[in-house]
Amino acid sequence: MSRVQHNFAASRFDIYSDGIVAASVHYRMNGAEMSFIYTEINDSLQTPPLVQSLIRGCLDNAHRHRLAVLPFCPTMCAYIKHHTQYTALVPLAQRERFYLPTTPRPPRQAHLTVVRPQ
Results as ranks from 00 to 15, higher is better:
residue 117 P to Y: 09
residue 35 S to Q: 10
residue 49 P to A: 08
residue 30 N to Y: 10
residue 69 V to P: 00
residue 48 P to T: 05
residue 95 R to N: 03
residue 62 A to M: 01
residue 45 L to Y: 06
residue 93 A to T: 07
residue 87 T to L: 14
residue 22 A to Q: 02
residue 92 L to D: 13
residue 33 E to C: 13
residue 109 Q to L: 14
residue 87 T to F: 03
residue 29 M to P: 01
residue 18 D to E: 14
residue 101 P to Q: 13
residue 82 H to E: 15
residue 78 A to E: 12
residue 93 A to H: 12
residue 76 M to G: 06
residue 97 R to N: 09
residue 53 S to K: 13
residue 99 Y to I: 09
residue 34 M to Q: 11
residue 111 H to N: 15
residue 73 C to V: 03
residue 49 P to G: 07
residue 49 P to D: 10
residue 34 M to R: 08
residue 47 T to D: 08
residue 93 A to F: 11
residue 63 H to C: 14
residue 59 L to N: 00
residue 81 K to H: 08
residue 43 D to Q: 15
residue 110 A to W: 10
residue 100 L to R: 07
residue 49 P to M: 08
residue 104 P to H: 10
residue 1 M to L: 14
residue 68 A to V: 03
residue 44 S to M: 12
residue 117 P to I: 10
residue 53 S to A: 12
residue 74 P to R: 03
residue 67 L to I: 05
residue 97 R to G: 09
residue 26 H to E: 10
residue 52 Q to N: 14
residue 39 T to S: 08
residue 99 Y to D: 15
residue 59 L to W: 03
residue 12 R to H: 03
residue 30 N to V: 10
residue 24 S to W: 04
residue 62 A to I: 04
residue 76 M to R: 01
residue 15 I to T: 00
residue 41 I to Q: 02
residue 105 R to P: 02
residue 67 L to Q: 08
residue 49 P to H: 10
residue 117 P to S: 13
residue 2 S to Q: 12
residue 51 V to K: 05
residue 22 A to T: 04
residue 63 H to D: 15
residue 90 V to M: 05
residue 61 N to D: 15
residue 31 G to K: 07
residue 10 A to P: 02
residue 55 I to V: 15
residue 96 E to A: 14
residue 84 T to N: 14
residue 12 R to S: 01
residue 40 E to D: 13
residue 66 R to M: 12
residue 56 R to C: 08
residue 104 P to M: 12
residue 27 Y to E: 05
residue 67 L to R: 06
residue 29 M to C: 09
residue 37 I to D: 04
residue 64 R to G: 08
residue 23 A to N: 02
residue 62 A to L: 02
residue 1 M to W: 11
residue 108 R to E: 12
residue 86 Y to M: 05
residue 72 F to Y: 12
residue 29 M to W: 06
residue 25 V to C: 07
residue 28 R to V: 06
residue 73 C to K: 06
residue 69 V to Q: 00
residue 105 R to W: 04
residue 44 S to R: 13
residue 78 A to N: 15
residue 38 Y to E: 04
residue 10 A to I: 05
residue 109 Q to N: 12
residue 74 P to G: 02
residue 101 P to W: 11
residue 43 D to N: 13
residue 86 Y to N: 06
residue 112 L to R: 15
residue 58 C to G: 00
residue 57 G to W: 02
residue 53 S to F: 03
residue 45 L to M: 10
residue 44 S to W: 01
residue 67 L to T: 00
residue 13 F to R: 03
residue 61 N to G: 04
residue 105 R to K: 13
residue 18 D to Y: 08
residue 101 P to L: 08
